[in-house]
Design a protein around this nucleic acid. Structure first.
Lengths: 344, 344
DNA sequence: ATCGGTACCGATAACGTTACCGGCAACGCT
DNA sequence: AGCGTTGCCGGTAACGTTATCGGTACCGAT
């Protein structure tokens, strides 16, 4: 009993044809209940498992979803967990590939998944990606594809993402309501859609409060803690330094916090700070950092559900766009008006 | 041009047999260089991609590795990244499945991967798992399997993991050297190997310093922040409360920290604290928490390399065990003797 | 007796690929 | 002239499965 059993083995042992075995196992009609029982019993005994490869080859689908993400940080790993949950339920297996924010890796990954013959893709695009040919190739082949979280206007597909503009808006408005006047934004790379949307929200909040946009207060830097740290140091070195900072990710907020502390400034008094994502870590810091929350897990689930829908209606469906609402979580770092109850 | 091209299409267009095309594409001998060129040209033009399903069915390997992890927290996602890196390089695609620390999910996942016909497994076992039949089934089928990080004596297989005992030892010894006398340990579930090893290290450090083991100071609790918080509250409510706590994960250290702060105790003066994993977050807290570092990324890489080795020597190899060394990172939370330079 | 229907089953081709075997021509050598 | 060798190529089976078609046997009704 080394090699796994096949329907052929069962057929031979039972002296019936493989066709009958196949039917019996799929519990199809047109097969005597006695033979069905016999087949079932034997296949149990031999621990028969249908060979998915053969099956997939035959019916041209693998029941596998290719998931491409730029990394597996807190937010994305929550989303992937959501995808996993729904996909597993629906009988799909997922293959997760990290592009490491690299354009090249992203291409290699799509290529790999494509010729692993996944049934479709759920994608969050890397921050480095400016050309979308590799993804368009997927669509040309009529393979279902859903994008989530990091969407881009250059890629028209069913999508699930946060209302990033609104997120940027409520964060900025909150700072304004707290009395901050010179609000800087630490944005991501210029071609990163989520960053731009959050910045749009920032700008429209400024406009609502009749505050002129100041290009010196708009800083683009790489999507990580170290760059944010240095960028903040520069901001704080300005003659007229900002009195609040909105960073488009919590990682960046942490970088900013380190710079602020180093300069000896106190939050929220000397300077306000608010991040984005509401990672658990920000509530552990001193002071606790305010942030814009999104339900990553739900976004993941929604993406998987949308994928399965798209899969079924194979293509003849408008590219649905699901937009989730962010939620403001106010903590110490931005709360100047109502002083926090405890320390500080 | 809807369906992808096959060698059959190429053969027909070129009026040669599929055998020849197959040989030409694999760049085999026994084929005229002119025909080879023609085939190459046409396959380029038709954008021919070999069908991996058919290939896999034929040669009974999928070039896919099934990776099963309990979750995708910081440590494991770093390890997975390491696995990814090496596997990709070696031409393998990885399928990552999260068991969510659930025994049931783990079984479902192995089952899924098994009949997705992965070439082998790289596994970190869930904390809930007490029976290993599902993994032994893999071995019985002679399918390569490497375990990493969370290993267990119940599963004999090539493995890569940290020297957890040594990690527990150096953490505890450090606390002792700092002058702490009543050191509690917050351990994980009783059947979790890494937890037990770290505890063994803890015990042998106590023994070295001739301190009697006190069962009241040994607390098993679930592997997460909330449980650690409550467990710490209980510890601190003792008549003779501990003057230091060693937690076997940083998550738990954070829970402990919250409890300590709530009780109004100061680290490192009133109580010492040291965690495990050296997640970036612990250096951001106030006070910064000491921790035992391991190079997760390297462990992941090593696991993948070991897998590939195992794969090649198919089975006739002793079950190699690679043990990585931990590293102590001393920060404010445990440094009583040499007072930290800055605040507090 | 013939017919139609039903219940059950088997043979075959196909999915896309490769391994294996055998064949044919051309060539050089005895 | 006959032989073995070499270079190139094609046919076929096989991997494990299912869809399609057709066949047999039996039953009840005309």
């Amino acid at each position: 009993m080394d090699k796994p059993a096949t329907i052929k083995d069962i057929a031979k042992k039972l002296n019936i044809s493989i066709s009958t075995v196949s039917r019996a196992i799929r519990n199809a009609s047109d097969v005597n209940s006695d033979t069905k029982k016999a087949v079932m019993a034997l296949s149990e005994e031999l621990n028969y498992q249908p060979n998915r490869l053969a099956l997939s080859l035959r019916q041209k689908q693998t029941h596998t979803i290719g998931v491409i993400v730029p990394n597996l940080d807190y937010v994305l790993s929550m989303m992937v967990k959501g995808i996993d949950e729904v996909a597993l339920e629906a009988g799909y297996t997922v293959m997760v590939c990290q592009s490491n924010e690299s354009f090249g890796r992203e291409i290699v990954n799509t290529r790999r998944l494509l010729d692993s013959l996944v049934d479709g893709f759920i994608i969050s695009v890397s921050s480095e990606t400016k050309s979308f040919e590799h993804f368009k190739k997927i669509q040309e082949r009529n393979i279902p594809m859903v994008v989530f979280d990091r969407v881009t206007p250059h890629l028209v597909a069913p999508s699930v993402h946060l209302d990033n503009e609104n997120g940027g808006f409520i964060a900025t408005e909150h700072l304004l309501e707290q009395g901050y006047k010179r609000i800087a934004i630490l944005a991501g790379p210029k071609n990163l859609g989520i960053s731009n949307s959050r910045m749009d929200g920032y700008l429209s909040a400024l406009k609502k409060y009749k505050i002129k946009k100041d290009n010196e207060l708009i800083v683009h830097c790489d999507f990580n803690q170290d760059y944010a740290y240095f960028a903040t140091l520069e901001l704080l070195a300005m003659k007229k330094r900002p009195d609040a900072i909105f960073t488009i990710s919590d990682r960046m907020a942490i970088g900013a916090m380190l710079a602020i502390k180093e300069k000896g400034l106190k939050m929220p008094h000397d300077i306000g700070l608010i991040g984005f994502n509401n990672e658990p870590v920000v509530s552990l810091l001193t002071p606790q950092i305010s942030s814009v929350d999104m339900s990553s897990f739900e976004i993941g689930k929604a993406a998987a559900k949308l994928f399965i829908e798209t899969m079924h209606n194979n293509g003849d469906m408008p590219a649905e766009e699901q937009i989730m609402k962010p939620r403001l979580v106010i903590r110490e770092s931005s709360q100047k008006k109502l002083p926090a109850a405890g320390k500080l």
